[in-house]
């Protein structure tokens, strides 16, 4: 599904250069639940941003279903993300002035679907993940766990092939974190969604199909692959 070859990302800060991602080769298989494990500053978020087309690599290639992300224009990447990728962030990234239904509807509205139609599907998904009583609540009226559920609902509403989650449990207590992990696994199994999750939380890695350790921008050789 996703093929990454000799990927590099270098940031320049004044006279300093920081190689956030250094020579990564990785294949991501459709339907798998992959965890990218590593300490803060190891390059996990950078790798996720590159896979998601939010950032451009300094060198190397990223190809998803034949689409080369590294050479695509900004608007092409925006369309590609809209159609193929869902995102889940550590701090939920919900729009504060919109309620749960409206937040979840956003990806469909980005595709040009009318709000009425998008709303119907948003309600369906929110109900499925247990938020039927929180449909009209704004983020400030939701708990951390509920906000992250809304964010997950938003990430899947447009039926993407890939979900990229960057520290999805980083801002949650252990109980909520477990619930979110369980939800993601459930969606992976039931909907066949490919998950790539960046985290330093070992619990997330427990039931993953594959665990890749990233340290100093490089994949460590001791990764776990349960698919084999």
């Amino acid at each position: 599904m996703i093929s990454i070859h000799q990927l590099y990302k270098t940031y320049h800060r004044g006279s300093e250069s920081v190689e956030a991602v250094s020579g990564i080769d990785l294949e991501i298989i459709k339907g798998e639940f992959m965890v990218i494990l590593g300490p803060s500053g190891g390059g996990k978020s950078t790798l996720l941003n590159l896979i998601g087309g939010i950032d451009h690599p300094t060198a190397g290639t990223i190809t998803m279903n034949g689409f080369a992300l590294e050479t695509a224009s900004e608007e092409s990447l925006t369309r590609f993300r809209r159609d193929h990728i869902g995102f889940v962030f550590q701090f939920y990234n919900l729009l504060s002035s919109l309620n749960a239904i409206e937040n979840v509807s956003m990806p469909l509205m980005a595709k040009g679907i009318a709000f009425k139609q998008a709303k119907a599907k948003a309600v369906q998904i929110l109900t499925r993940i247990g938020l039927e009583k929180r449909l009209h609540h704004r983020p400030s009226e939701l708990s951390g766990g509920e906000q992250q559920r809304v964010a997950i609902a938003r990430s899947i509403i447009s039926e993407p092939e890939l979900i990229l989650a960057d520290e999805p449990t980083g801002d949650l207590d252990s109980l909520n974190a477990q619930a979110i992990i369980a939800l993601m696994h459930e969606l992976n199994k039931q909907m066949g969604l490919t998950f790539v999750v960046a985290t330093h939380n070992l619990r997330l890695a427990e039931n993953a199909d594959r665990v890749v350790e990233l340290r100093d921008g490089k994949i460590q050789p001791n990764h776990i692959d349960k698919t084999k």
Binding site: I54, R79, R82, D83, F87
Partner: peptide, 16 residues
Amino acid sequence: SFEIGTLRVIGFPLSK
């Protein structure tokens, strides 16, 4: 800028 960035991430083009 944060919210607009989020909208760009989830696929809203500049024109919208």
